[in-house]
C-alpha cells in the first residue's frame, strides 16, 4: 500500500503556490506561446496573425487600448450614492466611500490606483494572463479528479500511518536538505547576507536539530523568519516576465517562467543529485528511494492547501489561479 502511495505521489508535485511581475501578454503564434511585454513589443511579422487571448477576468492586463476618457477624477463625480442600502449596513454606513462610478461590468473596474483612493483596493490583485484558459480548465478538471479520487485518499492513508509529529520531522528534514536551492538563489538575487543566514540556519538545524529533523532555528529570532526563495523568484528578480499561466497535468499550475524555475529547483535539490553522472542504475534507485517520502510528504501538505482553498470556493479554477498568482508575488518580493 505504501509503495503504491509512494509511487503515485512521486508522480505528483501538486504545486499550488508560486509569482510576481505578472502578466505580460502571451500570444500564440503557430502553436507556440510567446510572452511579450505589450502589444507594441510584438515583432511586426506576427502582427497579422497574433491572437490576443486575455482571460478577461482581470482588466488590469489588457493591452493598453487608447481610451478617449482618461482616468476619471474622483472629485468630479456627483454620484457618491451609498453603495449599500440601509438594511444591510445598519451598523456602518456613511464613512465608506462608494466604490466605483460605472458598474456596467467588472471590466469597467478602475485600475488599482484609483481604487486605492476610493478605499476599495483589497479586491484587486494583479492577475496573470491566461490565454490557454479553455485548455487549462480541462487539465484542471482532470487534476481535480485525480487529487480528489486518488491522491487525497492516499494522503489520508499516509497521514493515518504517520502521525503529525513524524510528518513534521520528515518535512523539516527535506526542507533543510533544500538548502542549496535557497543559498544559490539568494546569491543570484544579490543577497549574500541572506545566503549567509541560510548557511547558519542549515548548519544549526543539521547539527543541533539532528540532520534537520527538528527545527531549533525557529527559536532563533534572526533565523526564524528567513524568507524562502527559489529559482522562479530569481528569474523574477532579474525582471524576466512571468509569461502566461499553464496548468500542467498532475503538477498543477505554473507560469511559463515558473516552469523553467521548477526545473532549476529540481537541479539544485540534493535529492536528485545521485542521478547525475550515471543515469539509472543504483544512483537512480537512490534518488527514487529518497525522493519518494519527500514527494509524499510535500504532496500531502499541498493537498491540504488545495482542499482548504477549493472547498469553499465559488469557482475552483479561478480560486487556485488567483491564489497561485498572489502567493508567487509574495515569494518573489520578499
Amino acid at each position: 500500500m505504501l509503495a503504491l502511495a509512494a509511487l503515485f505521489l512521486f508522480l505528483a508535485q501538486v504545486v499550488l503556490a508560486t509569482d510576481t511581475n505578472i502578466a505580460p501578454y502571451c500570444v500564440i503564434v503557430g502553436g507556440q506561446i510567446i510572452p511579450v511585454q505589450s502589444n507594441s513589443s510584438l515583432p511586426k511579422k506576427y502582427g497579422g496573425e497574433t491572437l490576443y487571448l486575455q482571460s478577461g477576468v482581470s482588466p488590469n492586463h489588457r493591452p493598453p487600448t487608447p481610451k478617449p476618457t482618461p482616468k476619471p477624477k474622483i472629485a468630479i463625480t456627483p454620484v457618491p450614492a451609498p453603495a449599500i442600502p440601509a438594511p444591510i449596513t445598519v451598523k456602518k454606513p456613511a464613512k465608506e466611500h462608494s466604490s466605483h462610478k460605472t458598474v456596467q461590468s467588472p471590466s469597467s473596474t478602475s485600475d488599482n490606483k484609483s481604487n486605492k483612493d476610493l478605499g476599495d483596493d483589497y479586491g484587486n490583485a494583479k492577475s496573470i494572463s491566461d490565454p490557454l484558459e479553455p485548455m487549462n480548465r480541462g487539465t484542471f478538471w482532470f487534476n481535480h479528479q485525480l487529487y480528489h479520487y486518488v491522491f487525497i485518499p492516499l494522503s489520508k492513508t499516509y497521514k493515518f500511518i504517520f502521525p503529525q509529529l513524524v510528518r513534521t520531522g520528515i518535512s523539516n528534514f527535506f526542507l533543510n536538505a533544500e538548502y542549496p536551492t535557497r543559498f544559490v538563489n539568494n546569491l543570484l538575487q544579490g543577497k549574500p547576507g541572506r545566503a549567509g543566514l541560510e548557511t547558519e540556519k542549515f548548519l544549526y538545524n543539521s547539527t543541533v536539530g539532528v540532520a534537520g529533523i527538528m527545527k531549533p532555528s525557529a527559536k532563533v529570532p534572526w533565523l526564524a523568519d528567513l524568507p524562502s526563495t527559489d529559482t522562479d523568484a530569481t528569474l523574477a528578480h532579474w525582471k524576466i516576465p512571468s509569461g502566461c499561466y499553464i496548468v500542467w497535468p498532475i503538477l498543477g499550475p505554473k507560469s511559463l517562467r515558473d516552469t523553467v524555475g521548477f526545473v532549476g529547483d529540481i537541479a539544485l535539490d540534493p535529492v536528485t543529485w545521485p542521478t547525475y553522472g550515471t543515469l539509472g542504475g543504483v544512483a537512480g534507485a537512490t534518488t527514487l528511494a529518497v525522493s519518494a517520502p519527500k514527494t509524499t510528504t510535500k504532496t500531502s501538505e499541498k493537498l491540504d492547501t488545495y482542499e482548504a482553498l477549493t472547498r469553499t470556493s465559488i469557482d475552483r479554477y479561478s480560486a487556485v489561479r488567483s491564489a497561485y498568482t498572489q502567493n508567487r508575488k509574495k515569494v518573489s518580493e520578499q
Partner: peptide, 11 residues
Amino acid sequence: GVSLVANYRSQ
C-alpha cells in the same frame, strides 16, 4: 500573500 477578498473577487 493570498488575500481572501481578492481571491473571491477573481471568482
